[in-house]
Amino acid sequence: MRLNKMTERVITTDLSAARDLIREIIREVEAAGYDKDDCFAIRLATEEALINAIKHGNKFDRSRKIRVSTDIDSQRVEITIADEGEGFDPASVPDPTADENLEKPCGRGIMLMRAYMDEVIYNDKGNEVRMIRNRFSGLPKIRKTSANILERKDD
């Protein structure tokens, strides 16, 4: 039997609302039988995406909303997070693992989302991200090469 739980939620631009939502999502992921690695990965990616929506998308404006939809079945988890901001070009974000960026305190969120989820897809405007993780797909999704370049394991 294919169990499938789709949920749509709207939260205010607020850290505590984000924290409560992450807890709810992880409870649902656990209830669907996902293991600790999956839960860790989904928790991390969801936290990073929600914080980006709050901070960079909605710029802490509490009058703006964040839409979050989750689609959880026995084989994969899909989470879509949309803010009401101007959007951005994710390709313009510097690689935080480059030697010259290692000491920067910020800028690792998108890289972590990509590292811990199987797919991370932005819409054209850059204010909505869809993240997919397949069950039991391990940690993390990227590896270091001898040239210190991070590549996806499945490339």
């Binding site: 690695d37 991390l44 935080p96 693992t97 290692l102 890289m111 972590l112 590292a115 993390p140 991070l150």
Partner: peptide, 15 residues
Amino acid sequence: DKIRELLETTRLDKL
């Protein structure tokens, strides 16, 4: 193990 992997993935183990 998970946090060590995170440090390695971000290359903060080099810092």
